[in-house]
Design a protein around this nucleic acid. Structure first.
Lengths: 136, 136
DNA sequence: TTTATCCCCGTACCATGGTACGGGGTGTAT
DNA sequence: ATACACCCCGTACCATGGTACGGGGATAAA
């Protein structure tokens, strides 16, 4: 059983470039793993999840800096859990705001699809107008 | 009544840099407005909404190219509405995927908040583990 | 043991999305 | 008519998030 992965294996499983792995390490998004005698990185399997999380979060509009903050949210013996909870609440609010914005965009798109399929007034068929109407 | 806005006025209202306005024009995200006799850009008020939409969509992880595609979704006399509806459906699917991913992240954060506030096992208190458990 | 494939590291380069600069004209209030 | 803020354009520069290159060593299969 292979309990560790090489950098190339992680990259392949997480669908990123090897250079990206090294870049994330430099940026502190992926912890420096132990090395083999020949100085190869030896990653635990969970690193794959971590990297996938990073990619997914990026697609949701988080910067690497913000993602680092998300990954750092954990209670350790040294951290006061009340502080961590406070930060978690802030992150939840940020996520909720994104969800709301996406839902607004979604319903604008949906109403676009409905309203514009008939022979309605062409002038009302942009996503911006759909958003306006939902806001109002 | 001022029915047109200068570039500076739009920039201020939409909370972007003036240079950003000109950049969006070059990229085709904001249509080239008519000019005054002294060659000043004369924007209709709706441009403010358009620019705000661009910024919001960016925060949701859309690239300028994708945003251009969103803004272009409209039925014109020349476009077959069936094609437009097809594209709209694709966009809706993309938005739904983002919403789902954000909801997963949200519930991971929420369970982080609950589970880590007591004196549970510290090892289970990262967002990655919370996501794992929700997936399973 | 050779050949292919992987890993190391440092450095350079790239695309996206802006932002700044500078020399010139305009608009307007005093 | 003078000052001050605003606009024009072209060009240069910047930060983020990678990606490529190249010389050198390690490992595995034939």
């Amino acid at each position: 059983m292979t309990h560790t992965l090489t950098i190339g294996a992680v990259a392949k499983l997480a669908e990123v470039n090897i250079e990206t792995m090294r870049y994330y390490e430099r940026r502190g998004l992926v912890p420096r793993p132990p090395r083999s005698t020949s100085n190869y990185r030896q990653y635990p399997e969970e690193t794959v999840r971590r990297v996938r999380f990073i990619k997914r979060a990026q697609e949701l509009g988080f910067t690497l800096k913000e993602i680092k903050g998300l990954l750092a949210l954990r209670v350790t013996p040294r951290a006061k859990s009340s502080q961590v909870r406070e930060r978690v609440r802030h992150k939840i609010e940020a996520v909720d705001a994104k969800i709301k914005a996406l839902e607004a965009m979604r319903s604008a798109l949906a109403s676009l699809e409905v309203r514009c399929s008939g022979r309605g007034n062409i002038g009302t068929c942009s996503i911006l107008r759909s958003l306006d109407e939902n806001d109002a």
